[in-house]
Design a protein around this nucleic acid. Structure first.
Lengths: 196, 196
DNA sequence: CGCGACGTTGATTTGCCTCAACGATTGTGG
DNA sequence: CCACAATCGTTGAGGCAAATCAACGTCGCG
């Protein structure tokens, strides 16, 4: 059972017992996804949050000129959501989809109250999971404000070494905030990793 | 007592009773701060988190060229921390200081365990507070990737109208990710608010 | 008063974007 | 099995947003 990824996390972060893990599982819905299948699109109201069992999830927005901007990659073992829509109950502005085929667990908002009350440790689990995400965003934001495109690219490679070969280069460009054309030019001139 | 700001938040978000609020208060330390006084500097290990009672807090990093990049403004009623250092226990890379004189409550990491176990609702309170921060960061990140400097400035004005007159303009420049010189030029040409 | 912080303005440079064209690859339907 | 379209990366010419560097005026403050 590949729920083990989640179980380990629940145990390690918040100390949920085996029984509690199983109980939590009863609130989750498993869903297989094809390549490029959406979990959410702009205008949708978030109904839950997603745990990636396998595959790679992508959270992004589309600007007024039609360009995609990837806010976060969520490889297996991560939670993903349009938190702002979830929190406000209003239509969101984000897209969430699978890069390649994969599988997620869905934790529906409508089950939150009951699950949290029966499993108080979940509060802690998601508090700490949220902290991790904040600290990621914080670092990403700082990088965006202070580093050049090439440095951001190198950072990306350091942080997500597994993704390098297996996602389209334009996704990386979108993530680090440059056009695909420009990233291509960056990589063709062999000044990489020469910095400091 | 201006702890009321915190009490209201605790009550509204997680439903803490009056007694619980008072108990939580016993874990907090009040501290007055002068203008530009630091709560944390790069290299420090985070020992706790800060609730702003009055004044304005600033979380920022300094890049290798010595330029400041403001990641977050925390007006009164907000929590601030170098979460990454707090989480890992390692030296952080951020600075946190007061823009003008103010006052904070400090919740020490060493008190976390006891406070959370005596006040389980705190888990929920901080889970939800964290979600808010994530959703702010998410929006900020999306703005940074897709908007022009002028649009980001206008966004800033919309989101923090109270700050406009009373903080140095260069802080705003740092927050939206441009040089002070360039922001000055933006504002001198009267194309503001003309878009959409 | 004179110093330092801040905002402004101008000249110049540059990092990155835009647009357009092209080859390589993949997938798809006939 | 082969045309065809679609997607992706690449390359080049040109343009623009924003940075850099420097000088200057203003203000608050020791």
């Amino acid at each position: 059972m590949d729920n083990q990824i989640l179980f380990n996390d629940l145990e390690k972060i918040a100390g949920l017992s085996r029984n509690e893990q199983d109980l939590f599982l009863t609130y989750l819905h498993r869903k297989k996804l094809r390549k490029r299948q959406f979990l959410m699109e702009e205008g949708d109201i978030a109904t839950g949050i997603f745990f990636v069992l396998c595959g790679l999830l992508r959270i992004y927005s589309i600007d007024k000129n039609g360009y995609e901007h990837i806010l976060r990659f969520c490889p297996e073992g991560n939670w993903a959501a349009d938190i702002s829509s979830l929190y406000t109950g209003k239509p969101g502005s984000l897209y969430i989809d699978m890069v390649d085929a994969g599988e997620v667990l869905i934790f529906l908002k409508s089950d939150f109250e009951e699950a949290f009350s029966k499993l108080p440790l979940l509060e802690r689990y998601f508090r700490i999971t949220g902290q991790r995400i904040i600290s990621d965003f914080q670092e990403r934001l700082a990088d965006g404000l202070s580093l050049s495109a090439l440095e951001r690219y190198n950072n990306f490679c350091d942080r997500y070494p597994k993704l390098i070969g297996c996602i389209p280069q334009k996704y990386i460009a979108s993530y680090i905030g440059v056009t695909p054309e420009f990233l291509s030019k960056l990589l063709s001139t062999p000044q990489r990793k020469s910095r400091l």
